[in-house]
């Protein structure tokens, strides 16, 4: 079986708003999968559904064959799905390093006794933790800021830190909600290289939302288009560009 994330017939309503309507899509192993669509199309809502923040009205989601429906948010992370947020949600008053250490919480095993006694197992775990966190910071390129408070980072670096924090849990699927938002062109290009190298090195799948269609074309293996909560297209980038419904949706939303 090659499918990692399977979203099956997911619908989600908020009162009168039909945020998602019978959306199905599947992300393959080691694939970079793009999600585009006009504002309010339901992209973030789909992220919230798969990460357990929002309960869908109907439909179900499986990751590596395990159903995620009804699981608590922190359990879904343990199953291997980590995410970043469109409106950055770091731990602003903690250092960059601490943010990443917390991202690796699910892989730690230290309980009260270990914390108090600081026995050998705890010390080994902490050492491993710090090593990995430093390596991750190096990988996303903000290692020189390890001791800075997260809130004092530049916007772009905050987005990078969010990626590092999500990676710290060793996810099978990394879900990025507009990771390039607010970045300049050089920063965007660097970020794209980073995402490609993460896929190559870690053999993970990446699900990414972004408005910059050109940037997405150069990044994604396949792209799905959401429009008013419906999936109106799903294809390889070259064909998405020419898809009549997609052109209509974008022109429609622009007018």
């Amino acid at each position: 079986m090659n499918t990692l994330l399977d979203i099956h017939q997911v619908s989600c309503r908020f009162g009168g708003v039909r945020a998602l309507h019978n959306v199905s899509l599947a992300v393959e192993n080691n694939e970079i999968f793009g999600l585009i669509g006009p504002n309010g199309a339901g992209k973030t809502t789909l992220f919230n559904v798969i990460t357990g923040l929002v309960t869908p009205t109907s439909g179900n989601v499986t990751l590596d064959g395990c159903s995620l429906t009804g699981l608590a948010v922190h359990d879904i992370l343990r199953y291997g799905l980590a995410r970043t947020f469109q409106n950055i949600r770091l731990f602003p008053g903690l250092s960059v390093l601490e943010n990443v250490l917390i991202g690796r919480h699910s892989l730690g095993r230290t309980g009260i006794w270990g914390a108090i006694s600081r026995n050998q197992r705890t010390r080994r775990e902490e050492a491993e933790l710090r090593d990995t966190a430093h390596r991750l910071l190096q990988q996303v390129g903000i290692h020189h800021h390890a001791q800075t408070l997260a809130r004092n980072l530049s916007y772009g670096d905050q987005r990078r830190l969010e990626i590092a924090r999500a990676l710290a849990s060793e996810p099978k699927l990394l879900a990025l909600d507009e990771p390039a938002a607010g970045m300049g062109q050089t920063e965007r290009d660097a970020l794209r290289e980073l995402i490609l190298s993460l896929r190559a090195q870690r053999r993970i799948s990446i699900l990414v939302i972004e408005h910059d269609v050109k940037w997405m074309m150069a990044l994604c293996d396949r792209i799905a288009v959401l429009h008013f909560g419906e999936r109106i297209a799903l294809d390889i980038p070259e064909r998405i560009r020419q898809h009549p419904d997609v052109i209509a949706a974008y022109l429609g939303s622009a007018s």
């Binding site: 990460t51 923040l53 608590a72 948010v73 922190h74 992370l77 343990r78 980590a82 995410r83 947020f85 949600r89 770091l90 731990f91 602003p92 008053g93 903690l94 601490e98 250490l101 917390i102 991202g103 919480h105 699910s106 730690g108 230290t110 309980g111 009260i112 270990g114 914390a115 108090i116 600081r118 705890t122 775990e125 924090r165 849990s169």
Partner: peptide
Amino acid sequence: RLQHSRIGRAWAAIREDELAAAASGIAV
């Protein structure tokens, strides 16, 4: 000792942003 441990970090995460803490795998 608790403060400077995995447990103390989990508490700090909850204090800073409960939702992000849950999304980081902490059983809030």
